[in-house]
Design a protein around this nucleic acid. Sequence first.
DNA 1: ATGTCC
Length: 486
Amino acid sequence: MTTFDADDVTLEEVEEHVWEIAREDGMNTPARVLASEALLEEIADDDTLRQIRNVTHLPGVQRHALCMPDGHQGYGFPVGGVAAIDAEDGCISPGGVGFDINCGVRMVKTNLTYDDVRGREEELVDALFDAVPTGLGGGGVVNGDAETMSGALSRGLDWAHEAGYATRDDLKHCEDEGMRPDAEPAKVSQKAKDRGRNQLGSLGSGNHFLEVQRVTDVYRTDVADSFGLEADQLVVLIHCGSRGLGHQVCSDYLRRIEEEYEEFLADLPDDNLAAAPAGSDLAEDYYGAMCAAINFAWVNRQLITHQVRETFADVFETPWEELGMELLYDVAHNIAKKEVHEVDGEQKELYVHRKGATRAFPAGHPEVPSAYRDVGQPVIIPGSMGAGSYVLRGGEESMARTFGSTAHGAGRLMSRTQAKREYRGEDVQSDLQEHEHVYVKAESGATVAEEAPGVYKDVDEVVRVSDELGIGDKVARTYPVVNIKG
DNA sequence: ATGTCC
């Protein structure tokens, strides 16, 4: 059996691409890292392995704490972490969701091809940059008055549909139909609402982006047919989250946990693993507030979708419906959700934490929308602006291996600080345009440097591991055409 | 990720 020795963590390869950290004192389960040896060497470079081992100390964690192939160091939990925790006797952890609650990605299809946009890239990138607010701070596309905020937080895409920003099909092609009925806007602080009210329909900063892409490869033709994808087609990828609102919800509840559960935290190996015991008022309050932030993020991505459709209609002088601009799917990759999973032959209700991990339910699962029930849920894996992205479908092994989850992206290789030492935004931008025909427009040059293609792991390798493990199967690959970011 | 510390 192959052994991998990192600083103070030893892993054994129990199956191909499955590395296990054995259970020791304080751990409630073993931990598992799903990676090739090449990816594991990169993962071992930061604190990820210790972090995923720490997660197993949380009460009620089931089977294994899991790190996906794109994992890297995060706050308490690694990014790329999956932890399914007993919803009756366990706990819920804001650090297992992340600061950017319902950060996620959606793909909007078109019936245009790459030829339709060649030579007009700058016109398109300028028009999108004008239509979609980017960067830190305020500026959205609708006014978040009290009534709007209440609708968005409590009803998500149901509100967006009523307000004329979403079609019925958009709702059907979104995880949870774009609405968490457990949302409790009253549990979201006024401060969080104030931060979000002028950010409804804004991209934000960091790794968030909006990208027009072309489909370059199709791997499973039958599934791609069901998804409505084919080679050369233009698609739009929107990657963003809940902005300042979600960030404030996370901060608010981390502080409350620190205040109210000091003793509970003292038993954990890392203070940043802060969690509220299942069944406590605090756990219920956080869940209600988190679900409201989830709904806010879905509305955010929907409003951006609306702006993109209007922009394409202007640029191509054709109504967006005639451009075939339907939503393929919208996936959340920073969430916790009450889900029922089989553990040791028993059906259990669990808080499934996916932090930088994507739900990847297989064909036949009742929560896969009817349009995709026969082939599996679409999974969207954004890569860097130099590498492109993938569409997968939830694999047959995902329920048994990962509580129905796979990776969420390429995963960072280096910190933002290090990235700014290694790259200059202007150079990255001109290299991409001259050598790769990718047109990037950004609010800040520093953000382009932080997001340079070289700061990411190899998305092809991440997806290969997902495919070979059968948790998320390759369907199609895309390559960037134009990209806007914060 | 984030009005990058109320």
